[in-house]
Design a protein around this nucleic acid. Structure first.
Lengths: 113, 113
DNA sequence: CAGCATCCCCCGGGATACTG
DNA sequence: CAGTATCCCGGGGGATGCTG
C-alpha cells in the first residue's frame, strides 16, 4: 500500500498508471512524443477536447513531471509543450500499448503530420 | 477517429488504453500475470476492492478478451482467472510502466507471494 | 493565443445485503 | 465461494464565456 498526496495506491504500477489515466493524457503524451507542440496545435489535433480540459491535463502532466513547457515572452503569447526526460522514457511503453492494440483489434488511427 | 460500440476514440492508443483504464484493471492484470487466481484470492490480494467492483472489472476484461476463466463444476464453486494470449502480450507493457514508476518515483510495492 | 472561472452532468465505483 | 441486486455519491470532465 502506497500513500501519496493523501491518496492510496495498491502498488507502484497502480500509482504510475494513475499518472496517465486522465481521459486525454496518453493521447497528449503520444503527440508530444513526436515533437513539441503549442497549445492550440494540440487542441486542433486532439479532436473534441475543450480548452479547459486540455489545460487541466497539461497542468497535471506538468505537475507530475511528464511534460515541460517554454513560454515565449511574446504578444500574442506562445507556449510550447514537450516531453520531459521522464516522459520520454515512458513513451516506449505507450507505443507498445499502441501497437498491441492495432495488432489485436485492427483499428485505424489517422496519424496527423 | 474511431467508433466502437457507440463510443468514440481519437486513435488506436486511446482505444487500447481505455480497455485497461478501469480503476483496478492493471492491478488485476498484473497479478494474473504471475499465475492464475481465484476470485476470492484476487479480492484478498487487492486491498480495498469490493466484490461488486471486482466482478465488474473482471467481466469487462473478459469481454475485451484480456482474461479468461475456468469454472470448475464443484460445490462450493471454484473459478480461476488467467491472462489470455492477448493479455499476456500486453503484460510486458504494464511491467515497463511499473519499472518506469519505481525508477522515477522511488515507491515501494509490497509484492505478495 | 493561452488559460481561468462557473455551472452542471454523468457514470464509475463504494457500501451493503441477498442467492445458487 | 462466486457471484447478483440496489442505492448512493464524488469528481472528472463537458459547455460556455471572460481576460491579459
Amino acid at each position: 500500500m502506497i500513500s501519496y498526496n493523501g491518496k492510496e495506491y495498491v502498488c507502484a504500477l497502480d500509482f504510475g498508471f494513475n499518472l496517465i489515466k486522465g481521459k486525454w493524457k496518453v493521447v497528449i503524451l503520444c503527440h508530444l512524443g513526436n515533437g513539441a507542440k503549442r497549445f492550440l496545435e494540440l487542441q486542433r489535433i486532439i479532436d473534441g477536447i475543450s480548452q479547459k480540459v486540455l489545460n487541466q491535463q497539461l497542468r497535471s502532466l506538468e505537475a507530475d513531471g511528464l511534460i515541460e513547457k517554454v513560454v515565449y515572452p511574446e504578444v500574442p503569447p506562445r507556449v510550447e509543450y514537450y516531453l520531459s526526460e521522464k516522459g520520454k522514457e515512458l513513451y516506449p511503453a505507450l507505443k507498445m500499448i499502441e501497437s498491441w492494440t492495432t495488432k489485436h483489434y485492427d483499428l485505424y488511427c489517422k496519424d496527423e503530420e
